[in-house]
């Protein structure tokens, strides 16, 4: 029993990342009808927003500390971040410590801008071209973005720790009446899960309860009619692209303490998130979220020791197997709409 709960919990945080990326992908596909292979790169850019911010925050200058000496007996030089000068030592240190959550605020405008620039500058010209061309050009864009990041940040992983307060694990088992240490779960993953849920709920609420969202939904259902009513749907769809980029970016921002960012992390996630979108059903937002969590949990169940002993290697292929099965038996996906990309 405790094993099952543990695996569900483990699946939740991976599933949250899958769900967030797949949600963004589906937003783009559902509104603009574009298959965006650069979406993984947006996830990666989000993660590097965090890296940039934490580097900016810890910009420092050298100060000679008279009270201490180095091993040669000279006065010791200490790097003091500018933030210490501005806010004092405790507040400054706290700000640096909280770099990851702070970069949520930092990354939203950047990611929206990147998304809008991408849509206006490149993807706009590909609406009328076949899906294969869209895949190819966004694939090229992903390579370019990835290489730019590699040039500036290098090819190594850059560790970005979570705030001190969230380091460590929560003894989940003890809290619900199992033996202590049976179910241990890192705090940050709990944060990630709730963050993802909030973000998903936010996107759905935005689409469901605002006028803007209503128009976008109408445009997704029937673009031409909405245009005939005199609404500039293209502009709204561009903004939706920006929002989708921001969702992918935020998923990346919050994922940095779990996996240290490196330039090809986007590609690693991209393959799986496409699988997620297809399993959920092309163009279905709830489907993308559901499939993200289902596949995440499926993956963590498949990595249980008992199951690996039974079927070696199943943990690494279970997602693809599920995708193949779904595509063959239920081509529309779990919650796919009728008539969307069914050829």
């Amino acid at each position: 029993m405790d094993q099952i709960i543990l695996q569900i919990l483990n699946g939740l945080d991976k599933g949250s990342a899958y769900a967030l990326i797949a949600l963004g992908l589906t937003l783009i596909f559902g509104t603009l009808g574009v298959v965006n292979f650069a979406h993984g790169a947006l996830f990666m850019l989000g993660a590097f927003c965090t890296v940039t911010l934490s580097r900016m925050l810890s910009l420092s200058h050298e100060v000679v500390d008279e009270t201490r000496t180095d091993f040669l007996g000279n006065p010791l030089k200490v790097d003091v971040p500018y933030l210490y000068d501005i806010f004092g030592e405790t507040t400054g240190a706290a700000i640096i410590d909280w770099a990851v959550p702070l970069s949520i605020l930092f990354s939203i405008p950047i990611m929206i801008l990147i998304g809008i620039a991408m849509e206006r500058g490149l993807i706009k010209h590909f609406y009328k071209r076949p899906h294969a061309d869209q895949i190819l050009v966004t694939f090229g864009l992903a390579i370019v973005l990835q290489e730019i990041i590699k040039y500036y940040f290098g090819a190594n992983q850059i560790p970005t720790p979570a705030p001190e307060a969230f380091v460590g694990s929560f003894d989940f088992g003890a809290a619900i009446g199992f033996d202590p240490n049976a179910i241990i779960y890192p705090y940050w993953r709990i944060v990630y899960f709730f963050f993802a849920m909030t973000l998903i709920a936010g996107v759905f609420a935005f689409l469901q309860f605002t006028t803007f969202g209503m128009v976008v939904r109408a445009g997704m259902a029937d673009r031409e009619t909405v245009q005939l009513l005199g609404i500039n749907i293209d502009r709204r769809f561009t903004i939706m692209f920006g929002i989708a980029a921001a969702v992918a970016g935020l998923a990346g921002v919050m994922y940095t303490p779990i996996v240290s960012p490196n330039y090809h992390m986007g590609m690693d996630f991209l393959v799986i998130s496409f699988v997620v979108v297809v399993v959920g059903g092309m163009g279905s937002l709830p489907g993308a979220v559901l499939a993200g969590f289902v596949l995440g949990i499926l993956e963590s169940f498949a990595s249980m020791r008992e199951i690996i002993e039974l079927l070696p290697g199943i943990n690494q292929v279970v997602i693809y197997l599920a995708a193949i099965l779904i595509l063959l038996t239920r081509p529309r996906g779990l919650l796919g709409r009728k008539g969307v990309m069914e050829d």
């Binding site: 393959v271 297809v278 290697g313 693809y320």
Partner: peptide, 25 residues
């Protein structure tokens, strides 16, 4: 059995499976 983007993703899924299996099991 499928075409378009689904075909791309199916082949991608199979190839990734082959890669992972070749590297492990």
């Amino acid at each position: 059995r499928r075409s378009g983007i689904y075909f791309s993703i199916l082949t991608l899924a199979f190839a990734q499976m082959a890669f992972v299996l070749a590297a492990s099991v």
